[in-house]
């Protein structure tokens, strides 16, 4: 698998994403600086990593979503390349208009770092096939703005189209409908707040995140 991890100023899970993809599926991963203007056509996966792009001083992800590399991300989304946004990456994908909804401040108004048990609500996507009959996945969240919000019509649309991929069993932050991760209509862009890039090996407490990468090998 050929993968690229986009590095924005303030990204801090870029290396984690690289190591996770390498460890889980032996991917060939290169790091791409956000000022680049080309993403090669032979990429199988583009990862938008977590962190605090541009310090999150504006709305989370808003600045990154207009970085020079963004045009290429949009082009690849259109082409059908798999795109995975984790944490700040999810926020960036929402800001870029590739996914519906937005991430608000956690309802506790605090940053929350904890283990979360997820319900794999759709195991029939290219990112979740490998879960098979495994309906639960343990990962961690670490964010201040992980509280997913969209209007009722959008939530209904997501439900009707079976595009809610992960839900929290115990909602940590007030996310509407306990939503932890959603996929776009075409099925090639996944955004999620929990970190598969921190749950890819037993010694980290869980390897349930590895299946996100393994699923992509079954394409």
């Amino acid at each position: 698998m050929k993968a690229a991890v986009i590095v924005y100023p303030g990204s801090n899970c870029d290396r984690d994403c690289k190591v996770a993809a390498e460890t889980a599926v032996n991917a060939d991963v290169k790091m791409v600086w956000h000022k680049e203007t080309h993403l090669s056509d032979d990429l199988d996966l583009i990862i938008i990593p977590g962190g605090f792009s541009y310090g999150d001083y504006l709305r989370c992800g808003a600045m990154a979503s207009v970085s020079p590399i963004n045009a290429e991300i949009l082009r690849h989304a259109e082409r059908g390349t798999s795109i995975l946004g984790i944490c700040n990456g999810f926020q960036i994908l929402c800001e870029a208009g590739l996914l519906e909804g937005t991430l608000l401040r956690n309802n506790s108004l605090k940053y929350i770092c904890k283990d979360v048990m997820l319900d794999v609500t759709n195991n029939n996507t290219r990112f979740t096939k490998a879960y098979g009959n495994q309906t639960k996945a343990m990962m961690t969240v670490g964010n201040g703005e992980g509280n997913y919000f969209a209007d009722d019509d959008t939530i209904k649309l997501l439900e009707d189209e079976n595009r809610i991929v992960f839900k929290y069993l115990e909602n940590p932050n007030g996310s509407k409908g306990d939503i932890a991760g959603i996929i776009n209509k075409k099925g090639n862009v996944l955004g999620m707040m929990p970190h598969p890039d921190r749950a890819f090996a037993k010694e980290l407490g869980s390897d349930d995140g590895a299946n996100v990468f393994k699923s992509l090998m079954q394409l």
Binding site: N12, C13, R15, D16, V19, A20, G50, K110, Y111, I112, C113, K114, T140, G142, H195, D197, R198, F200, L204
Partner: peptide, 11 residues
């Protein structure tokens, strides 16, 4: 206290 600290980044 510690739930407000990112304890896992860098994996």
């Amino acid at each position: 206290i510690w739930e407000q600290y990112d304890r896992h980044v860098m994996a």
